[in-house]
Design a protein around this nucleic acid. Structure first.
Lengths: 215, 215
DNA sequence: CAATGATGGACACTGCTACTATCCAAAGTC
DNA sequence: GACTTTGGATAGTAGCAGTGTCCATCATTG
């Protein structure tokens, strides 16, 4: 297909396609002549990935470059796959984690989320680092998290992750699996948060005995 | 206190304080003379709220204006409180929900999140609308959600919301309760998502039998 | 009591991001 | 042969969230 078709099919302007190629997010088409190049499904898929990451995930172009780099050079082992996915999704410009947050995490997580990696020193994975920092931010916003709360949430998220991991493991190539892990989290995170709000409304209406629905 | 102190205590430059006042996010200090005004804890609290919403929630200044407007004019009834909180946190520029997503939500949510509001026609609350749209986006990103998945997630999020609602109801004035509902969601959403990732890593390492931890 | 320096108010300006627009010459199309 | 499309390059734009600068006032301090 030509640029115009790629642009229409991915719902993006030609100018944007050119832009993505220029900054290296998208590989150029195969040049047929000085004024013609051929684009294929890999281009279409890439542009759609970019748009999902921008529109749904709210990732910056810079972050997307990292995602793309990881996809073009995926980890060989299954074990590092999620780590890589979580690393690119991780918010890098957060203040460092407080000691109390790390202690809380160390105390609660192994108990409610047992893992084979608990033998020996597990180190701090991207996700654990993110958790440390998120709890630190909450603390400094005057919203301290108790061990009980975290335990309860951890158990709930284990149930969520059961579904996730099963879905992710079905796939074939490392690049595809990585793609799935990244897109899967990006598109389903908002669903989870929306469900949380729905649950809050319904629970609160039950507790208060009234009707929460708006006009 | 004077601007300089307010600026230091809220970790913001004087220029930013002036900016927030100029655009109406922050009420001016009480003028003592042409070159002196007195600021109090309400100013400090407001600036900290703004920064939390910007830094943690990633809200735009425009959205924060809505939050501030809601706080200055909170709903009188407890029942509308969460609805208002969810309305201001809701992403307004999403495509409309698909019929299939709405059907999915209607089929799953009442079953796993029973509510007093289910008598008669409940309408669509802000959170439900957000959920519809989030599922629609997932569908159109090639990530269809099954009823089983949604049910499982819904049950997990009910457990999460149990903790939330208890915390929110402890408070006094409508404005305070609204503030808590908004900040609470904003600062704890990232924790939940981080826990999800941690759970994924640990579960996957258990399934794969290896060690997921990075270097 | 004069020098110093913080304040309020107004307005212009900046830095960053993510595109858009324009131009051109070559190539394909009708 | 007129018209459209493309690739490549470069410059320009829109929006957001502040910053910088200026000035007249005013409080403080040596």
């Amino acid at each position: 297909m030509r640029v115009s078709e790629l642009a229409v099919r991915s719902d993006v302007t030609i100018a944007s396609v050119k832009y993505y190629i220029r900054i290296g997010l998208l590989h150029p088409g195969v040049a047929q002549s000085a004024t013609r190049a051929e684009y294929d499904d890999s281009h279409l898929e890439r542009v759609r990935l970019i748009r999902t990451l921008v529109d749904v995930g709210g990732l910056s172009i810079e972050r997307i470059s990292e995602v793309v780099a990881a996809l073009d050079n995926p980890p060989a082992s299954r074990h590092e796959l999620l780590g890589t996915a979580h690393e690119v999704l991780r918010d890098r410009d957060r203040p460092p984690a407080s000691a109390s947050a790390q202690r809380l995490v160390d105390g609660v997580v192994p108990a409610c989320l047992p893992s084979a990696a608990d033998h020996g020193n597990p180190g701090r994975s991207p996700a654990t680092l993110t958790l440390d920092q998120a709890i630190t931010v909450a603390e400094s916003s005057g919203w301290p998290i108790t061990a009980e709360t975290l335990t309860c949430w951890g158990e709930a998220m284990r149930a969520v992750a059961e579904v996730d991991v099963v879905a992710d493991l079905a796939d074939a190539s490392p690049a595809q699996a990585l793609r799935y892990a990244i897109i899967g989290n990006v598109v389903t995170d908002p669903i989870l948060l929306a469900l949380r709000r729905v649950a809050q409304e319904r629970l609160s209406s039950e507790r208060l005995g009234g009707v929460t629905a708006p006009p």
